[in-house]
Design a protein around this nucleic acid. Structure first.
Lengths: 173, 173
DNA sequence: CTTGAAATACTACTACG
DNA sequence: CGTAGTAGTATTTCAAG
């Protein structure tokens, strides 16, 4: 249960960073590729896919977790089914660009219900947020009750998503 | 292995849609909440958490999958560790607003390497894309080699993400 | 340092009450 | 929905490359 083994990287690894990436074998990449697509697969089936024995495969998966390469394995739900069928992209401009202003906004933004993403960006906006709500009515409520009360906001522009063309959690490997 | 049971909804369900949502019990919500956070939990542990016997819990989970409420369970990887540490929000304006123009763009956009999200939006942009790359250099390459060749594009504005404040796959339940 | 084979412990899954 | 039983899996131990 302890994490006292971390020999693998072979290339010297930084301390706090998850992993320098470097050259993961073809097998590790195959494992990640599979788990990114479907992590409900049993270990024996995964082992067969990557042509490895079950214990060896399990060890690699656990090492990938310890190394922080696999952050979590989660269930992805259907947005409509859980009352979050509407997606809105929100561009935010702050009043002033001081550390306090940014900190206050970020703290508050994380509490906005349905906020999936929030990022500091370059360009004409200070932040982009992605927020999920049930429908336009509930977004209006969110807009009036929460977004307009975010601290230090000069302008907030909402881009309602009409159609989701692509939405994935899989990185190219 | 067959999906011939779907009595639960009690409210008449539509055919093609995943689920009308309706009133899922406190237990189903607890299950979803947990699996959204960590789906690597064993069924017995999950059953204990929601105060149910293991078989009953498993039946619920499988029903939630059959109903399409749980779309998939996947591993979330560390972006930096897999060479996708940079995130860029991209606003796209098309030349003309014809069905063919939109279709061509959408088809091409899905093939952009590292494209995580692509959505049709209202407002001054036609699309918002979220693209992941290794660093600013590789983004420049992507920009020159792929983005500028997307069909029917009048303007494309890139907002580089300086800091990711929040990024989650969990919907509020 | 990693792998594979065998043994154990635990879990998923089925049938039934 | 719960209990009990079976089948299969995860996980450890250990020997070998």
């Amino acid at each position: 249960m302890c994490a006292t083994k971390l020999r693998r990287p072979s290339t010297g690894a930084s301390r706090t960073e998850p992993a320098p990436l470097s050259q993961h074998d073809r097998i590790d990449r195959a494992i990640l590729k599979q788990l990114q697509q479907d992590a409900s697969i049993s270990n024996v089936a995964l082992a067969a896919k990557v042509k490895l024995s079950a214990p060896a495969c399990l060890r690699r998966v656990e090492r990938l977790k310890e190394m922080g390469l696999i952050r979590a394995t989660v269930a992805l739900l259907d947005p409509k089914a859980v009352g979050a069928g509407m997606l809105v992209v929100i561009g935010v401009v702050l009043d002033r660009s001081t550390p306090e202003t940014f900190a206050a906004f970020e703290k508050a933004a994380q509490k906005v219900s349905g906020c999936m993403e929030c990022h500091v960006v370059t360009g004409e906006f200070d932040y982009f947020m992605l927020v999920r709500t049930r429908d336009s009515e509930s977004f209006n409520r969110l807009h009036a009750e929460q977004l307009l009360y975010l601290p230090g906001v000069r302008q907030i522009r909402s881009f309602m998503v009409l159609k989701e063309i692509l939405s994935t959690t899989r990185f190219p490997l």
